[in-house]
């Protein structure tokens, strides 16, 4: 019943996303708590709402179901579509801060490379400690990179793409939420270092946080999405060959 109503309203997903996110943002501005991350709050509120109303999450994201398991695309994925032009626009702050790129090429490459290596090494260690299967291990390997590259790599090397997408989203939210605290605790102050740390550990979701820190942070974080993604593609091809059991 509710499924049908939601499916026939093309603006259901878009409106719910905008409304809940706006509410979560207001809540954070009022409480000023880093833990009340608007992304976690709005994600949780919408998931709970969908579970209570028993509305299919695919209607919320992809819109009205069509024949053959397809959807008409009138859901919250509208916002996701804008992610491509938005990623393209990350080139603007990067260009505006090109002086930093020219001054610190070694620090930028070194920082991102160390982060990318740490990421795959951590997954390897976790895999060996918990005795997970090869496909589960490959699923987790691309966790720190942008969804489009990560899911493609999981598919290519024999992971479970839907779980990879979930882990990448979870990783991003984690990085987004903890960034301010981590930088303070570990005395990472230089805006270039802060930006690289956000983008390398938490891809685009970390970058949206870096934007709140400042322009240099945003530019460096945006750069990290691309560079860390490409480095990880190469690293993953080797790490995926390490047998789990």
């Amino acid at each position: 019943m509710l499924n049908e109503i939601a499916a026939s309203l093309p603006f259901f997903g878009i409106f719910l996303t905008a409304l809940v996110y706006l509410g979560a943002l207001k809540l954070q501005q009022k409480t000023k708590s880093a833990l009340l991350n608007p992304l976690i709050i709005s994600g949780a509120v919408i998931i709970i709402f969908l579970l209570i109303t028993k509305i299919d999450y695919r209607i919320f994201i992809y819109g009205k179901p069509l024949e053959g398991g397809r959807y008409d695309g009138t859901g919250a994925a509208f916002f996701q579509t804008m992610l491509t032009p938005t990623t393209v626009c990350l080139a603007i702050p990067l260009y505006e801060k090109i002086a930093y790129l020219k001054k610190y090429p070694l620090a930028i490459i070194g920082g991102i490379l160390s982060g990318a290596l740490t990421s795959v090494a951590c997954v390897l260690a976790i895999g060996l400690i918990f005795g997970i299967t090869q496909d589960q291990y490959i699923t987790l390997l691309p966790k720190s990179i942008t969804t489009a590259i990560g899911v493609a790599m999981a598919e290519e090397l024999g992971g479970i793409p839907s779980v990879t997408a979930a882990v990448i989203a979870f990783t991003g939210v984690m990085g987004n939420t903890c960034a301010a605290l981590v930088m303070k605790l570990f005395k990472i102050k230089h805006p270039v270092a802060v930006g690289l740390a956000c983008g390398t550990s938490a891809h685009a979701i970390g970058t949206s946080r870096a934007r709140e820190f400042g322009e240099i942070e945003e530019a460096m974080s945006g750069l990290s999405i691309a560079v860390c993604g490409l480095i990880t593609v190469v690293l993953m091809s080797f790490f995926a060959m390490i047998p789990m059991q």
């Binding site: 905008a18 999450y57 994201i61 839907s162 989203a169």
Partner: peptide
Amino acid sequence: LLTLMPIMFVAPIVGIMGS
């Protein structure tokens, strides 16, 4: 677009439900 970026991640996060 860059200001709106965070809202673009709400749908993928809800998509975790699928897995």
